[in-house]
Amino acid sequence: MQILNPDPAVTQGPDRMLSERHLSIVRLVLPKGTTIKRHRSLMTVTVVAIKGAIVFHTDDEETRLAPGQAVVMQPAEFHWLEAPDEDGEVMVVHGVLAD
C-alpha cells in the first residue's frame, strides 16, 4: 500500500502525487477565474471534484461538478475545465484500464 499526501505548498496548478508509466494521479488546484485549456489524453481520465464548483467541458457537453461528483472520459476525448465562480480543486486520474 502507498499513501499519497497532497503538497500544501501547491496553491495553483498541478500537484503531481503519483506518476508511473500507466497511471498518474494529480491534484489540480484552480483559483477562481482559472481555465485549463482544451486537451486530451491517450489514457482513460477520471476527474473527481473535491472543492468548489468546477465547470467541466467536452466538445458536446458542459457540466457543473460539485464536490464528490466525477466524470470518466475515454482515451482521446477532448475536454477542458474552469473555476468561474470560486476556487476549486479536482483529483485527476489518468490510467490504462485492464480489459
Rank of each mutant, 00 (worst) to 15 (best):
E62R: 12
T35Y: 07
W80M: 08
M17P: 04
G52H: 06
R21K: 09
P31D: 01
I36V: 15
A83C: 10
H79R: 10
A66K: 09
K37S: 12
R21L: 01
L18A: 09
T35R: 15
R27N: 06
I50N: 08
G88E: 11
Q74L: 09
V72N: 13
M17W: 09
V47M: 12
P31I: 08
H22C: 01
A70K: 04
M43S: 11
R27I: 05
T34P: 00
R40C: 05
A76W: 15
K32I: 08
I36R: 14
T35D: 13
T63Q: 13
T35V: 15
L18N: 00
L42Q: 07
P75M: 12
R27V: 05
E61R: 11
I36F: 15
L23W: 05
W80N: 04
K37I: 03
V55D: 06
F78H: 10
Q74E: 14
E89Q: 14
I50V: 15
G88R: 09
P67N: 05
G33H: 05
A76E: 15
A53N: 14
S19Q: 11
V55Q: 14
T63D: 02
A83K: 09
A53R: 13
V72D: 12
D85R: 09
T46L: 14
A76H: 15
V47F: 03
L65I: 05
D87R: 03
K32N: 11
D59K: 12
S19K: 07
A49Q: 07
R21T: 06
H79T: 02
P67K: 04
R38F: 11
L42H: 13
G33F: 03
E89C: 04
Q74G: 01
L65Q: 07
S24L: 02
Q69S: 07
H79G: 08
E77Q: 12
A83L: 05
R16Y: 13
V55S: 05
P84Q: 08
W80Y: 11
E77L: 09
F78I: 00
P84V: 06
V55R: 15
L18D: 02
P84S: 12
A83N: 11
T46F: 07
V26Q: 04
V72W: 04
R40E: 11
M17T: 00
T46W: 03
S41L: 01
Q69I: 00
T35H: 13
H57K: 01
S19R: 09
V72E: 15
K51H: 13
E62Y: 02
P75F: 13
I36H: 15
V26M: 03
D60T: 09
G33M: 04
V72Y: 06
V45K: 10
L23A: 07
T63C: 06
Q69T: 01
P84G: 10
E61N: 12
P67Y: 01
H22P: 00
G33E: 04
E20M: 13
E20F: 01
T58W: 01
D85P: 08
P75K: 04
L28N: 03
A76Y: 14
E61F: 00
I25Q: 06
Q69H: 04
D59A: 11
R27C: 10
W80F: 12
F56A: 02
L23T: 09
P84A: 10
V72L: 14
H22W: 07
R38C: 07
R64Y: 04
K32G: 02
